[in-house]
Write a protein that binds this DNA or RNA. Structure first.
Lengths: 339, 339
DNA sequence: TTGTAGGCGTTATCAT
DNA sequence: ATGATAACGCCTACAA
């Protein structure tokens, strides 16, 4: 015996008043009789009336829905990030439409397209590893739907970004390793296309140079994040005449695979080779060999900041009717964590 | 220079035809001139027209949005589950509104309320550990908004559920442990209120009885999933005159904490005590001591099934206008995985 | 203080 | 083959 959620009209009819009277009563509008107001509120309560957000937003041309697109929710980094986004969103009566790209450009395009159709008020996205063309996202600018990138950001100026200072962070990691006696520091980087990879590489080189040592590109490998490619990278590194005494992995997941391979090769983890990584995920606490050094990237905070930025932009758009909005860029400081 | 997304009206004006003509042209309606159709489609393409899903769904009183509420997205079990939900949803042009309860009843109520305001077409939820009152969810029935529970389901008949057979699974675990020589099998269960805890306990007792041994309730502890409570549970077990030779943990996260504590107490993991668990999460591959036995619960599949069930219900509602819908209950078989 | 009317984008139903 | 109109739920300017 399903009935539909009560509407203002129904309340109006039952009370023999107009819909606008009900609307005003519910909104505590000043221009409404006290008696009417009470009767309306009472009935609304009884019927369990709830405003139809869809209708309101439809009229206002706002949905109060923010699309969030992530590569993989199962990575703790991203699940923390979306939690930060959600927390801030709830505080401001926004709601999260969820989608994953699974690190594939095609899927990313699809999800993003679906979200456009749903008329999200804004889009928060962390790019797939292969996204190097941003047309599907720049389309949003045309329609004044703000896009905020976080962590995996594009190489565009003039967009809104929340990111960590990976360059500095990587320099810090190299410094720490050098201070702790490492002389042959390797890097297992991510796909070349990613800005995040470029930043790491630059930081790595800068760090090495700062130590007045020469850069040896044999020590720089790349992975596509698959276990196979990470294994291959480790294999190459271990096969060097002069193998590394430290390995910096792109993130904690790459790190886990790198360690797994090294163990198979009887390497003594964090003895023969020091392992460093990015993200400092809580889950690494339970792993057999957490990285000796990890760069905390505060994913929850990145999510919060991204959503806060989104809300600022949306509020700005509301007032400044059509003025050009400056793009925002928030850089979250990182912390080198050791254990 | 933001413009708004083009509408049917705009196209109509530019082409000097009526809005309905444009609508029909776009929909490949038979009653429309070929020439008009082509001109409309061409312009729509040029302008990048996209139907406003909000408007359509508003008219149809459908949103094509399914609310999904989980305790903790950062648990791999739930991130896998939501991926299953998302996959099926996308295939059927549904979209996911995301929310977490953080295992708190109050937050659960809030999110669920927000989703009702957003007029989701349906709700898929895995309950918070403390939810033992279902009013906030039964409210949905009244308005014919289907609710599908998965994994953490309520103790209600007459609702739609997707779950695993935890009773049988637990019997299987106990069997396996017994076959492998364990005589003092302990259980670290979840909160009493949870149906999932009750099922485990029943299965545990059944399993022990099947071995013609007596049930010793000293071997049954409970945790609220906090590290502290799990530590305390392990502490009690290890302090027994006759300590266990096997520990079954409520899930892999509890397992990790249980192992962590046991290790501090110099227990040889999976030697002195065999550890068993539920979920068989991929992440345990990287942990120092994966459970010797784990009950695979196929979270991705549970998500898929839940969403499929939701779609069936929605389609049924579309045809059978007001007939009572039978509640569905899907039980996913589990598998004992060893390593 | 309260009612009426119009409009948001779309489509179904009539009418032309 | 095409156009005009009404309707979905809500809000708001305007009218009474």
């Amino acid at each position: 015996m399903g009935i539909q959620l009560p509407t203002i009209k129904q309340i109006a009819k039952q009370l023999n008043v107009s819909a606008s009277a009900v609307s005003r009563a519910l909104a505590d509008h000043p221009r409404i009789g006290l008696g009417t107001k009470e009767r309306v509120k009472k009935l609304a309560e009884e019927l369990g009336y709830e405003p139809n957000a869809q209708a309101i937003f439809f009229k206002q041309k706002k949905t109060h829905i923010i699309g969030v697109v992530l590569p993989f929710i199962r990575e703790e980094f991203f699940s923390q990030a979306i939690s930060g986004i959600e927390t801030v969103a709830l505080d401001h009566n926004y709601t999260i439409l969820f989608g994953q790209s699974y690190d594939e450009v095609e899927k990313e395009k699809n999800v993003v397209e679906t979200m456009k159709k749903q008329r999200v008020d804004g889009l928060i996205i962390s790019l797939s590893k292969n996204t190097n063309n941003y047309e599907h996202l720049e389309a949003f600018n045309k329609y004044k739907i703000p896009v905020v990138y976080f962590d995996r950001v594009p190489e565009l100026t003039d967009t809104n970004k929340v990111q960590t200072d990976l360059f500095k962070g990587t320099v810090d990691i190299v410094n720490w390793l050098s201070t702790n006696g490492c002389r042959r520091i390797a890097l297992i980087n991510g796909p070349e296309k990613m800005a995040a990879s470029a930043d790491r590489l630059k930081g790595y080189m800068q760090g090495i140079l700062k130590q007045k040592r020469k850069i040896d590109m044999q020590l720089v490998e790349a992975t596509d994040f698959s276990k196979e490619r990470t294994y291959a990278a480790m294999n190459s590194l271990l096969a060097l005449k002069n193998p590394p005494d430290a390995v910096i992995s792109f993130n904690d997941y790459v790190h886990m695979d790198a360690v797994q391979y090294a163990k198979q090769k009887k390497i003594k983890i964090n003895k023969d080779i020091l392992f460093a990584s990015y993200a400092n995920l809580p889950i690494t606490d339970y792993t057999s060999h957490p990285p000796r050094v990890s760069l905390e990237q505060y994913p929850f905070m990145q999510g919060e900041k991204a959503m806060q930025m989104m809300i600022e932009i949306l509020n700005q758009n509301k007032t400044d009717n059509d003025s050009k909005i400056n793009s925002k860029n928030e850089i979250i400081p990182t912390t080198v964590v050791t254990r």
